[in-house]
Amino acid sequence: MSELIWERKDLLGLEDLSREEIEFILSTAESFKEVSSREIKKVPALRGKTVVNLFYEPSTRTRVSFEVAAKRLSADVINIATETSSVKKGETLIDTGRNIEALKADIIVMRHNYSGAAAMLARHVNLSVVNAGDGWHEHPTQALLDIFTLKEKLGKIEGIKVSVIGDIAHSRVARSNIWGLTKLGAKVTVCAPKILIPPGIEDMGAQVTDDVDEALHNADAVNVLRMQFERDESNAFPQQLEYFKNYGITEERLEKAKKNIVVMHPGPINRGIEMSSEVADGANSVILEQVTNGIAVRMSVLFLVAQANEFIKKNEDTN
């Protein structure tokens, strides 16, 4: 059955996926979530498979989450930190990918600072590529775990209102959330100072505001992004305190929002910049549940791409 719904060897972004495909990843994740609450947290679904984490950018949460997910599926996991690899000797991305393929690995999970890097790698290797974040482009498993968490909390995605607040221009999380949520029928509003709203974002299906109170009004959930001050090349970003004053999510602001508004953050949090500590640790926050759900979602993705690739290879053999 799964072959019919999921036939992709790679997961590169949510823009390419259909509603059915996204729902299928989520429902597969639901069945994997239970594994992490067992006494022996392991199933043999990917036994004998090798997953390589190839990270060109620093990451704790995402890399560890993928590693835990792969290990709970009984896969062997290898981590390559590019700081200590042949990349430092000038090896190209394609050569690195082909070498990993020659080692007979099955899945590369890649984080890269260039938008489009995962798409390019996937074109040049036959093994599966899972995008763990490429530049400002997409971070599909983050959006999937956000949506998974929202569905758990709110019971549905169709018709809900989600506001994404923060540095939209430089955020792969924002883009993947817009694609994923709108495909499933949610209404998405993005909110940021005007300089951090990229042109044409309305045509991706999001509403735009630069007023945080408007973004919070009537929202069922708010996804608060990390302010990436290190990316500011224009010297036009607001100052940190100015940003907190105008856009920071505080208890005071939440008082005017829906009582049960779900507060999410992809981490790592800048406490006191994009949200106050009280909110991050408060009753509406699901930030740590997101982390837990990330394992189930990534187990689902790793399982589905591996299965699809096996199916593709078998088909090639018989043809």
Binding site: S115, H137, R175, G200
Partner: peptide, 19 residues
């Protein structure tokens, strides 16, 4: 143009590239 690589607008936003 500031080190952009594609036309500024929906395309640059979709691709996550500088416009």
């Amino acid at each position: 143009s500031n080190k952009g690589v594609v036309n500024l607008g929906l395309t640059s936003t979709r691709l996550g590239l500088k416009g």
